[in-house]
């Protein structure tokens, strides 16, 4: 049996060195949304706000499309993603369902055992 390591736990992205480096710009952009003035700027003109952070085209696009799974793949950490979803707002369970590739109600029922 192979040894259990943090990098090999299936379907479980962790904020390790590669994710930290890859996601730094995205996470810094989202951290800015902790400030009400930046939230207002983001709501007024998302593209102009994103332009301040030197994002790559795929990072920009993932945010504008609210592609949660793609943001995580690009190194965004969920706790930063939540700052984006707080602006919309979008529920955390919807973000969960999107990452798994399930409908929201199916996710609530099958993963979380909720009666919906």
């Amino acid at each position: 049996m192979s040894e259990l390591t943090l990098a090999t736990i299936p379907d479980t992205p962790l904020l390790d060195r590669p994710h930290q480096l890859r996601g730094y710009r995205l996470n810094k952009m989202a951290m800015g949304l902790s400030d009400p003035a930046n939230r207002a700027a983001f709501k007024a003109d998302e593209e102009a706000y994103l332009d301040r952070f030197g994002l790559t085209e795929e990072e920009r696009s993932a945010v504008l499309r609210r592609d949660w799974r793609e943001m995580i793949r690009l190194g965004a950490n969920l706790f930063f993603v939540l700052k984006i979803s707080a602006v919309d707002p979008v529920r955390i369970t919807e973000i969960g369902a999107h990452q798994v590739g399930m409908g929201h109600e199916d996710f609530l029922r099958e993963r979380l055992g909720k009666r919906v």
Partner: peptide, 11 residues
């Protein structure tokens, strides 16, 4: 709990 990845929703 797990919030990220395809294992999101793990309990």
């Amino acid at each position: 709990h797990q919030l990220q990845g395809a294992r999101a929703g793990f309990l």
